[in-house]
């Protein structure tokens, strides 16, 4: 009789835990990672493995320093951060670059703020932006994708978005980009970060996550739609200067960002309404940076900026509590 558990209600708990979510996201990232491995070969495998191992190692170190025990190591968040970071790096990233990225992601962005749940910015994204600002040359030399090879030699090549920005600066028009086949970036046969090259594989992962209820449709759909609609409007206004919306869909880190980074639980709004605001905001900032900014790609910056706005969004998008007058009723 003395052995009964006297915990408060409810006595039933769902089987979906943090681990479920983390490992589902990792699973959903695998198609994208696999495409990266196929086109970038051994190099990609090296980057992914190193990034994951280092992130887990630093997570363990941080937990040790903070005296938290190794229990949280099992939640998979460090593995996920490592994988996401790797997918945001060029496939020829040197080891020291990955090391710095992991330090920034795990120590500076996550554990300085208190570990999983307390960080206000997406660790992998902060690491990516830190590296991009610190080492722009290394971070923007993308190897050309080719079918699977064991060779570590690479030829670097600009991304379609980079080409577009250059051409605009130089000639005031889109140049070759206007006529390129959009099937290549859709499948993944164009330059870019390791994990962002295949819109198709990333979309598949996104559909899996939404179907399994790990993420909701709000952020990815509003994010991608906003980018589509805005680039479409500009394209209609001046197709010489602005690329087609489909081009913006399939190039750069949009899919990776919208599906896997913007939806990060910890750093995105919690209410459905807030998620929509967040998605639209991310989309608008991405478009502005891509079309008018100094950098060719704006997904990382857009998401980080909106991460900063998340507490504010949450505060102003509280759902109407049951039994309270709706806004319309309150006015009447």
């Amino acid at each position: 009789m003395t052995n009964t558990v006297l915990s408060p209600a409810p006595h039933l708990r769902t089987t979906k835990t943090i681990e479920t979510a983390m490992y589902s996201v990792i699973l959903a990232l695998l198609p994208g990672a696999a495409v990266g491995m196929y086109f970038f070969g051994l190099n990609a495998i090296r980057v992914i493995a190193l990034s994951i191992v280092l992130c887990v190692a630093f997570e363990a170190l941080a937990l040790r320093i903070r005296g938290r025990g190794m229990e949280p190591l099992k939640d998979g968040s460090a593995v996920l951060t490592g994988l996401l970071l790797a997918m945001n790096l060029p496939s020829n990233s040197p080891a020291w670059l990955i090391l710095i990225g992991c330090v920034v992601a795990i120590l500076m962005t996550k554990h300085v703020y208190g570990g999983l749940g307390y960080n206000s910015f997406n660790p992998a994204l902060v690491a990516r932006v830190f590296l991009l600002i610190s080492f722009p040359v290394v971070m923007t030399s993308w190897p050309e994708p080719k079918s699977f090879t064991l060779s570590l030699d690479t030829v670097t090549k600009a991304t379609p978005l980079g080409d577009m920005k250059m051409s605009l600066l130089l000639n005031g028009n889109l140049g070759d980009i206007a006529n390129m086949s959009l099937m290549d970036p859709f499948i993944g046969r164009l330059g870019g970060s390791l994990g962002e090259i295949s819109a198709l594989a990333l979309l598949a992962g996104g559909i899996f996550l939404i179907a399994r209820g790990i993420i909701t449709w709000h952020i990815p759909v509003t994010y991608i739609t906003t980018v589509f609609v805005m680039t479409w409007i500009y394209w209609l206004l001046d197709p010489v200067k602005y690329a087609s919306p489909v081009f913006h869909m399939v190039t750069g880190g949009l899919m990776l960002g919208a599906i896997f980074m913007a939806t990060d639980y910890v750093t995105s709004p919690i209410t459905p309404k807030g998620m929509i605001v967040f998605g639209v905001g991310c989309g608008a900032i991405t478009v502005f940076i891509r079309l008018f900014g100094g950098y060719p790609e704006g997904v990382s910056f857009a998401i980080l900026l909106m991460n900063a706005a998340t507490p504010l969004i949450d505060r102003y998008t509280q759902p109407r509590v049951f039994g309270y007058p709706t806004r319309k009723e309150a006015k009447a």
Partner: peptide
């Protein structure tokens, strides 16, 4: 219920997944 079916759960930090907000029948946070 028997032993294996009931454990005392140690709360972990909130990861802000939002499922509680979506599940609340009175739309609280």
């Amino acid at each position: 219920f028997g032993p294996g079916e009931s454990r005392v759960l140690k709360p972990r930090p909130c990861v802000r997944c939002g499922t509680c907000v979506r599940s609340c029948p009175v739309s609280l946070m």
